[in-house]
Structures are given as structure tokens and as C-alpha cells.
Simulated assay, not measured.
Amino acid sequence: MGVRLAPVALCCALLLSLSCKQQSTASPLADATAFAASATQPAGEALRLQGYVNDAAGVLSEEEEKRLFTSLLRLEKETGHQMVVATTSSLGGKEISAYSLALGRRWGIGRKGIDDGVLILLAPNDHKARIEVGYGLERALPDSLCKRIMDEDMIPAFRTGAFGSGLEKGITALSQHLH
């Protein structure tokens, strides 16, 4: 009797362990329904996803973070699209396009299978910024539009050190094309 139960117990244990290892289809931001100020992170350290606003460079006030968070949360609730803001004190010598693409993929921004995430990356010490758009939104947010939004809405504010204002203007402009 004990011999016949061993294979059954082994199969149950194997199935249980496999089901625990399945990737979740939940959004990496699924629990980000309440504001929490992001923490600065040391240069050279891989950025950690802390929510909709990830101010690792420490250039945003708490009030600016709250406003950005509210806008980004509202965008996802209204459209399903995820947009995340990240600042970093250094790109570590990497090109911003490679850095932002790798970061967006690592964080899993956007819905799986739809690829509708947007990452706004700001590296103020490197004087670089980029809007990275998932394939699912390239028609709504083509490169030419993102460049225009950067040039007209965001970079003028960044040049004066008004990083929060520039990010707010960029989010507003991008969101208008996603509704």
C-alpha cells in the first residue's frame, strides 16, 4: 500500500512545485494603488521598480512625485496602459536607448501580450532623457511624436532644473494620445 502512494505523493509534490514557479500575469504595478515616496538609489546599482515614479536620482519633491503618481495611476485605470517614470543619477556609460530598453524589459512595464508600456527615463547628471514605448503603442506614440514632446514640453523645463514640471508636461502630452 505504501509503495502505491509514493508515486502519487511524488506527482502531487511535483505539480505543486511547478504551479508555484509559473510566472504571474499580474502587472508589476498591481499593488501600486497608494502613493509611497521613492527612495534614492546609489549610482551604479541596478534600479529597483518602486512604483509608477522611481526617483533614484532624488530630483523630485514629494509633492511632485504625488502629482506624477496620481496622473500615471489615472492613466492606467482609464486606458489599461502603464506608464512609469524613472530617474537615475548615472547611465553608467551606456547609451540611454539601450539603458531604457533594458530597464523597461526588466521591469515588465505594460501588459503581457499587449506590450503597451511606456517608460520615461531621466538621467539629469548625464543630461539625457528618453521616452521608451512598447511595440503595442508605437502607432499611438510614434518616435516622431515622442521626440516632439521631448523637445517642446520636457527639455525646456529640464534645462532650468524643473524636472518635475518637465515630467508632468510630458505625461500630460503623452496621455492625450492614449485616450
Rank of each mutant, 00 (worst) to 15 (best):
171 I>F: 00
68 L>E: 04
17 S>D: 12
75 L>A: 02
50 Q>H: 07
110 G>F: 00
57 A>M: 03
76 E>I: 01
94 K>W: 13
47 L>C: 14
2 G>S: 10
79 T>F: 08
82 Q>A: 15
46 A>M: 04
46 A>K: 01
107 W>N: 07
16 L>N: 10
91 L>S: 15
100 S>G: 05
30 A>G: 10
114 I>K: 14
143 D>T: 05
54 N>Y: 13
59 V>H: 03
52 Y>Q: 02
127 H>K: 15
167 L>G: 02
58 G>E: 09
7 P>K: 02
34 A>Y: 08
173 A>P: 02
142 P>R: 10
100 S>V: 03
173 A>I: 06
4 R>Y: 02
11 C>R: 04
137 L>A: 11
140 A>D: 08
2 G>I: 12
45 E>T: 12
128 K>N: 12
97 S>G: 15
117 G>T: 06
47 L>T: 12
157 A>K: 12
61 S>D: 08
109 I>V: 11
82 Q>C: 07
66 K>T: 06
80 G>L: 06
28 P>D: 10
15 L>M: 06
139 R>H: 02
168 E>P: 07
88 T>N: 09
146 C>D: 04
77 K>C: 10
157 A>C: 11
58 G>W: 13
128 K>Q: 11
63 E>V: 10
114 I>M: 13
149 I>K: 06
4 R>D: 14
157 A>M: 10
167 L>V: 07
80 G>K: 07
56 A>W: 04
113 G>V: 10
62 E>A: 14
42 P>I: 05
36 A>N: 15
139 R>C: 01
103 L>D: 06
122 L>Q: 09
147 K>A: 12
156 P>R: 12
107 W>Y: 06
79 T>D: 01
64 E>P: 01
73 L>Q: 03
72 L>F: 04
15 L>D: 09
176 Q>W: 04
23 Q>W: 15
81 H>S: 08
115 D>K: 11
94 K>Q: 15
179 H>S: 09
56 A>L: 03
115 D>F: 10
149 I>P: 00
50 Q>G: 05
126 D>Y: 06
89 S>F: 05
131 I>P: 02
133 V>R: 06
100 S>L: 00
101 L>T: 00
175 S>T: 12
34 A>F: 03
119 L>V: 14
20 C>W: 14
102 A>H: 13
52 Y>V: 00
92 G>V: 06
103 L>G: 04
130 R>Q: 14
129 A>G: 02
115 D>P: 08
73 L>G: 05
148 R>L: 12
159 R>Q: 13
178 L>F: 03
167 L>I: 13
115 D>S: 12
16 L>F: 15
134 G>A: 09
59 V>P: 04
45 E>G: 05
30 A>S: 11
83 M>R: 03
81 H>Q: 01
137 L>D: 03
14 L>A: 12
82 Q>N: 11
131 I>K: 01
136 G>V: 08
113 G>E: 10
85 V>Y: 02
32 A>D: 00
99 Y>F: 14
63 E>H: 03
